[in-house]
């Protein structure tokens, strides 16, 4: 449980792959794709129910981006924000419904309860932010932004980038991981001491699952919001 030994791994080309993450991630990817695919089948001028949901979601993520990225530049990041939000949301909620452990090893859980996954996305966001800054201002002007307000600020600017990267990834990881941990502990408690503890555990599990579902949605929203803030920071003139 969170133990390196509790997840199945394999080596390929000098890299270690975590099979749990791969299975869970694939499930999340497929779920997101099926959801979007199913809702986008009959796209008409007069939207049906599925199309309405999808358009609402598109508007929702676009509005998150518009909150920080200035006007007409939002469209370039719309697809990233949309996909990111859906994937993180599904990943956060996945572990609440499905957790499979076989032979002492986890096979399926929330992909976002592993820091490597969340940091992958925070790294992606930071890279997109750098890329957007370079595309907009050119190499020289973009990196001269690190020397503001004065040259000796450079270490702090670099350190800030690093902390942005870490906090963005670890925030969502922490919330989801702790949520799953607590669920597992409640689950262990349920079978530890007869009918009384089982009843208490069921109530606790229900409450905590509801709260975690809420937290998962909030964290997906926060992640996309912060992503847009970091991107906006790089494409706005100081």
């Amino acid at each position: 449980m969170g133990d390196p030994s509790s997840v199945p791994t394999f080596q390929l080309g000098g890299l270690t792959f975590n099979v749990t993450n791969m299975i869970s991630g694939l499930i999340a990817f497929v779920l997101v794709f099926l959801f979007v695919f199913a809702l986008s089948r009959h796209i008409t001028m007069k939207p049906g129910r599925g199309q309405n949901i999808l358009e609402w979601l598109v508007d929702f993520t676009n509005n998150i981006l518009k909150g920080s990225i200035p006007g007409n530049e939002t469209s370039a990041f719309g697809l990233y924000g949309f996909t990111l939000f859906l994937f993180l949301f599904v990943s956060n909620e996945l572990g609440l419904f499905i957790q499979i452990s076989l032979g002492g090893k986890d096979w399926v859980r929330s992909p976002t309860s592993d820091p490597i996954v969340t940091m992958t996305f925070s790294l992606a966001t930071l890279m997109i932010a750098q890329y957007a800054g370079v595309m907009k201002f050119g190499w020289k002007k973009h990196f001269s932004g690190y020397l503001k307000p004065f040259v000796f600020w450079l270490p702090i600017s670099i350190f800030e980038e690093f902390t942005n990267f870490l906090t963005l990834g670890l925030r969502i990881f922490g919330v989801i991981y702790s949520g799953e941990m607590l669920l597992k502990i409640i689950g262990e408690m349920a079978f530890s001491g007869g009918i009384a503890s089982f009843g208490v555990a069921v109530v606790l599990a229900l409450v905590w699952q509801g709260f975690s579902a809420f937290l998962g949605a909030i964290q997906a929203f926060v992640f996309v919001t912060l992503s847009s803030v970091y991107i906006a920071d790089k494409i706005e003139i100081d």
Binding site: T16, F17, N18, N21, M22, G25, P115, I116
Partner: peptide, 12 residues
Amino acid sequence: ASLFFGDIIFYA
């Protein structure tokens, strides 16, 4: 201890 860098590539 539990970071497997292959996952980064897989997820990306």
